[in-house]
Design a protein around this nucleic acid. Structure first.
Length: 467
RNA sequence: GGCGCCUUGGCGGAGUAGUUACGCAGCGGUCUGCAAAACCGUUUACACGGGUGCAAUUCCCGUAGGUGCCUCCA
């Protein structure tokens, strides 16, 4: 299993600390709005990572967080808390906002057939852990207090720019950022923010430094180390997290423990919609709900996501999504062959069905090469449409489908059989054809098509699939 | 302003120094009662200009366009 590692900037062989266990921490969403297509690109790719690890014999211990407090409107640690702002605008509490959008996210994960992380952890439920970590940093001299909070002194952590290959001096020269003048370094970030006296907050806690709430970055360090240990195997997240969030996580965690925080860092590149980045102001934050409204299945979304490589910036547009839906239709047509296996034995040669999942795995194990995996799968699908699946092959065929589902999550095994009545109609059509009653045969075919069942004739007889 | 990345056929998307994935869509054909499926062919794909190679889409330089980060964002 090889994976591009942002830490080394190379494709590295995954070697967990305690095989077969492999610990994974995924930076989850900040739940202040609906998850959009960009989020799903990222999280489906994480899902593929975990599936591939499992297929490779590893036992993933996967933790994902939900940020439900502390993520400010600006990463410069200024402005309002995202959730608090949303709550104020909608006349609700921050808790209500968090609950609502957390549910939206979890529902989306389920509809995309994502594996469930072993733990989904919330920042608000780990305040004590975060305070404990800040105290640890305080004792080691990495913190300082100014008017609005407790800050991390990045100047004390020499390796700070290394992970993201930051050139801090160069960056500052042109950046148009208004930094808090009390900060010792522009890159210093808040560990704990004090509640502003003039603003009512729904979420605030007591701390050794005063009432307030944790900074955004500290939660991931605290929770990942609590559940996965000081050093985790794989840390994943969106590519945007490299220069700030993950850089800060490393600074906090490694300063606190003196150990390396994560051995492998996987980052999902962003997706653009119609050539532009996804952002509120452009109004292109397409959600799963938008997609389902157009009659496109979540599985087509998943397939579309897998069509591109996670390391390159992908493009999203509706035409491609429709193409993915069509492609999925063909894969489903392959899947339903298991319901129509004849007992007769034809001389169709043998097809190494059980080899298919292994072939898929080999491609995924090569830095999650989903495009090549799908290319291979399409070839298999095309061949099987012709080979036909006979009765004594069904067990192997179903094992193959299950293997594909385990790896890609396309849920092909859920494609059910047609009704007895529909089967009767197909038989009637065949009988009519034998009698050369073309009108009757075509009528049956049209009736079936109205029910979403397409019939095609092969040398082995009539085969149906869903249109 | 600083630092990156990208530019592949109608669309999406792999890949490689010389044999041109894969999918969707179009066109023509074979097959078929008609379809569908399958198969064959087809629209001569690699932004532009230089350079280094026997050979460049694939390496180097430049130009143009796009785009990302440094602000919020998966």
């Amino acid at each position: 299993m090889k994976l591009y590692n942002t830490l080394t900037r190379k494709v590295d062989e995954i070697k967990p600390q305690h095989p077969p266990e492999v610990t994974i921490y995924t930076c989850g969403p900040t739940v202040y709005d609906y998850a959009h297509i960009g989020h799903w690109f990222t999280y489906v790719r994480m899902d593929i990572l975990v599936r591939t690890l499992k297929a490779g014999g590893f036992k993933p211990k996967w933790v994902m967080n939900i940020t439900d407090v502390g993520h400010l409107v600006s990463d410069a640690d200024e402005g309002e808390d995202k959730l608090q702002q949303k709550a104020r605008r909608e006349g609700k509490t921050a808790q209500e906002i968090a609950e609502f959008y957390t549910k939206d996210f979890l529902d989306g994960m389920a509809s995309l057939n994502m594996l469930k992380p072993g733990r989904i952890v919330k920042a608000t439920e780990h305040i004590k852990d975060q305070i404990a970590l800040i105290r640890k940093l305080e004792k080691k001299g990495y913190t300082y207090v100014i008017d609005d909070g407790v800050y991390y002194d990045t100047g004390k952590f020499r390796r700070y720019p290394e992970f993201a290959r930051l050139d801090l001096d160069e960056q500052q020269a042109g950046a148009r950022v208004n930094h808090n003048p009390q900060k010792r370094n522009p890159s210093d970030f808040a560990l704990w923010k004090f509640s502003p006296e003039d603003v009512k907050r729904d979420m605030e806690w007591d701390s050794p430094w005063g009432k307030g709430f944790p900074g955004w970055h500290i939660e991931c360090s605290a929770m990942s180390m609590k559940y996965l240990g000081d050093t985790l195997d794989i840390h994943t997240g969106g590519i945007d997290h490299v220069p700030v969030h993950h850089t800060n996580e490393i600074a906090q965690s490694e300063a606190a423990t003196g150990k390396r925080f994560a051995n492998y860092w996987m980052h999902s590149n962003h997706v653009t919609v119609d050539g532009e980045k996804i952002s509120k102001s452009l109004g292109n934050s397409i959600t799963l709900r938008d997609i389902e409204k157009k009659g496109i299945s979540p599985q087509a979304v998943r397939l579309h996501i897998l069509e591109s490589n996670y390391r390159s910036q992908s493009k999203f547009n509706w035409d491609s999504l429709v193409a993915a839906e069509n492609r999925l239709r063909d894969l489903r047509a392959m899947a339903v062959l298991r319901w129509q296996a004849p007992e007769t034995t034809h001389d169709t040669g043998t097809f190494a069905l059980l080899d298919v999942p292994l072939q898929l795995f080999n491609r995924l194990a090569d830095d999650l090469d989903t495009p090549q995996a799908l290319a291979y799968l399409s070839e298999v699908s095309t061949q099987l449409q012709v080979v036909f699946i006979e009765q004594d092959m069904v067990d192997h065929f179903e094992a193959m489908l299950q293997g594909i589902d385990d790896l890609l999550g396309l849920d092909l095994m859920s494609e059910g059989d047609i009704t007895d009545e529909q089967k009767r109609m197909i038989a009637e059509r065949s009988k009519a054809r034998d009698a050369q009653d073309w009108a009757r045969a075509d009528k049956m075919r049209d009736l079936l098509l109205e029910q979403g069942i397409a019939v095609r004739d092969t040398v082995h007889g009539a085969i149906w699939s869903r249109s």
